[in-house]
Design a protein around this nucleic acid. Structure first.
Lengths: 139, 139
DNA sequence: GTTGTTGCAAATGATTTGCAGCTGT
DNA sequence: ACAGCTGCAAATCATTTGCAACAAC
């Protein structure tokens, strides 16, 4: 029900595809999803949805501030629910695993670095790339 | 002459397109160039080169360690000469301007964050996005 | 009943690949 | 000569857009 309100609030009609995408983000254990990810899950759930719609909805949600878009080196954009709390990401270049972290000192210093070059920061997000040592590391 | 050696050293024949691309990076005032950038400059210099060759050469140079590839939010990859010295980047989301910086404390802390999640860092590079306040800010 | 939305197909932009011919060594 | 390169055209991948049919309010 809250989702319906969120959508109206953003000036968007509460349509089936949109509600489904929102609930997917709220219920998936993976916080970071790509358009393709979402499209596949919806198809498997029997929805009759088009990939183009998924892209459109994701972009609208981003503009509405419901989602945040990230471009990790993977080549495909991933989205996560915007739950206010700021954090940064560490991404596995091999399997795509994403972890979140926050370090106040880094925040302060990146702001200082930006200021030094006359840059105004948009969001403070920053991404670290590595290889995760977890067992599977594949997808 | 050194370029010829560098190429041989990497197991690559010293061909015209390759030498031209290398010298472009060495002589351009812009350290960060995309495939398209390089292709256009070469065409304007009267070279008879194909865009596919530029892409191939850039990838080979990256694998040989001569160049480093970055995927900033722009959607197109940019490359820079690998001159050993590690540094990070701050990129303007509006005009694409790229500045370089280095902060030992940030390095230390990103390493710590990575370790906490069992990630082994590849290179330590990290990118900050913002809007530069410089006058033109267009391209 | 409008106006906003959707699915589909075709278009786009960046990058890759197949292939016949050309070029360093 | 021979393997390694190259340009060109066609292919691929992620994403966008045009459009007629359709669903919210």
């Amino acid at each position: 029900m809250q989702d319906q309100k969120d959508l109206k609030n953003a000036g968007l009609k509460a349509t089936l595809p949109r509600l489904k995408v929102l609930s997917l983000f709220e219920n998936s254990k993976e916080r970071h999803l790509s358009a393709e990810d979402i499209y596949k899950v919806m198809l498997n759930s029997g929805e009759d949805v088009g990939l183009a719609t998924v892209y459109r909805v994701l972009t609208q949600f981003e503009q509405a501030g419901l989602l945040v878009r990230h471009h990790f080196e993977s080549g495909k954009a991933v989205f996560e629910l915007n739950q206010g709390g700021h954090h940064d990401h560490i991404v596995c270049m091999k399997c795509g695993r994403v972890e979140e972290f926050y370090d106040a000192e880094i925040e302060k210093r990146q702001e200082a670095a930006a200021a030094k070059f006359g840059f105004k920061m948009q969001d403070h997000s920053l991404t670290i790339y590595g290889i995760c040592e977890k067992q599977p590391c594949d997808k």
